[in-house]
């Protein structure tokens, strides 16, 4: 729990730094991007820190949260939904890449899309083999 809080504070600080740098470079093209990323990181970590603080104050709620995180049915539902989303994404991506190439988009953009698609499959096979060896 403490480790998680330290990580969230680190993310919040990083977000703050990016936000300040983004404001300083406001005239520059990168400034807006840094500001957006910084604000996003700050918001995300602040929300997690607040949730952690609320849960830590209420032992009953903390137990409930822990049960819901570990509940095997909910874990199964979450894994099932992720698997379906993976399948759905892999149906959508190839036609999308084809449309991009037919639309004569710059080659590097199409290749980047193909690379992401391939990396996703590599990650899938990595965990498939890893899990097969484990169980």
């Amino acid at each position: 729990m403490k480790k998680q809080r330290v990580r969230e504070v680190a993310v919040f600080t990083l977000g703050l730094v990016l936000l300040i740098v983004g404001i300083a470079l406001w005239e520059n093209k990168v400034g807006g991007v840094l500001l957006g990323v910084g604000a996003g990181l700050m918001g995300m970590s602040a929300a997690r820190l607040y949730t952690g603080w609320v849960v830590a104050k209420d032992p009953k709620l903390a137990r409930q949260v822990q049960i819901e995180e570990q509940d095997e049915r909910l874990v199964h539902i979450n894994s099932f939904a992720k698997a379906k989303a993976f399948d759905f994404l892999h149906v959508l991506v190839p036609p999308f890449l084809l449309i991009l190439s037919l639309a004569r988009v710059q080659l590097w953009i199409v290749l980047l899309g193909v690379a992401i698609y391939v990396v996703d499959w590599v990650v899938y096979f990595f965990f498939y083999v890893k899990r097969t060896r484990e169980i």
């Binding site: 049960i67 095997e72 049915r73």
Partner: peptide, 11 residues
């Protein structure tokens, strides 16, 4: 029962 088994009531 859910509390004793450390699962959710929905389970």
């Amino acid at each position: 029962l859910a509390d004793a088994l450390e699962v959710s009531r929905q389970t």
